Computed example of a mutant assay.
Amino acid sequence: MDLDHARWRKSSRSTGDTETECVEVAFVPGTVGVRDSKKPEAGALVVSERAWRSALVSFR
């Protein structure tokens, strides 16, 4: 999946030290990209919207 033009934003769950704990997410129709904001060139984990919602429910 091409996320080069995705709009990344800091996750609301990323509330720790911004130097060591910053996760960014990008919502693209049908999928969600997750990456480390300090190393965006390292790539992203891409999951379905359904998997993303399931993960959020399990973390509550």
Rank of each mutant, 00 (worst) to 15 (best):
residue 39 K to T: 15
residue 8 W to R: 02
residue 5 H to V: 06
residue 12 S to N: 07
residue 34 V to H: 00
residue 31 T to H: 07
residue 35 R to F: 02
residue 36 D to F: 14
residue 44 A to F: 01
residue 51 A to G: 09
residue 33 G to I: 00
residue 56 L to G: 12
residue 15 T to E: 12
residue 17 D to I: 15
residue 42 A to T: 13
residue 40 P to L: 07
residue 13 R to T: 12
residue 3 L to E: 02
residue 3 L to D: 00
residue 38 K to I: 08
residue 58 S to P: 04
residue 45 L to V: 05
residue 39 K to I: 08
residue 10 K to D: 10
residue 49 E to N: 10
residue 38 K to E: 05
residue 38 K to G: 04
residue 19 E to L: 13
residue 24 E to D: 13
residue 58 S to G: 08
residue 54 S to R: 10
residue 40 P to S: 04
residue 55 A to H: 14
residue 21 E to P: 00
residue 51 A to C: 08
residue 4 D to L: 04
residue 7 R to H: 15
residue 40 P to F: 10
residue 42 A to W: 03
residue 60 R to P: 06
residue 49 E to F: 06
residue 2 D to P: 06
residue 53 R to F: 06
residue 13 R to C: 09
residue 25 V to S: 00
residue 42 A to P: 01
residue 56 L to E: 14
residue 27 F to R: 03
residue 26 A to I: 09
residue 23 V to G: 03
residue 27 F to T: 08
residue 37 S to H: 04
residue 3 L to W: 05
residue 10 K to E: 10
residue 26 A to D: 08
residue 47 V to P: 00
residue 10 K to A: 11
residue 55 A to G: 11
residue 55 A to N: 07
residue 11 S to Y: 14
residue 59 F to T: 14
residue 24 E to P: 01
residue 28 V to P: 00
residue 30 G to P: 01
residue 20 T to I: 09
residue 59 F to H: 11
residue 37 S to E: 07
residue 25 V to C: 02
residue 11 S to Q: 03
residue 54 S to F: 15
residue 33 G to A: 13
residue 56 L to T: 10
residue 15 T to Q: 10
residue 44 A to S: 08
residue 8 W to I: 05
residue 10 K to F: 13
residue 41 E to N: 14
residue 55 A to K: 05
residue 19 E to N: 14
residue 18 T to F: 12
residue 4 D to Y: 01
residue 8 W to M: 04
residue 39 K to Y: 07
residue 50 R to M: 12
residue 8 W to H: 04
residue 4 D to P: 02
residue 1 M to T: 03
residue 6 A to R: 01
residue 54 S to L: 15
residue 37 S to G: 12
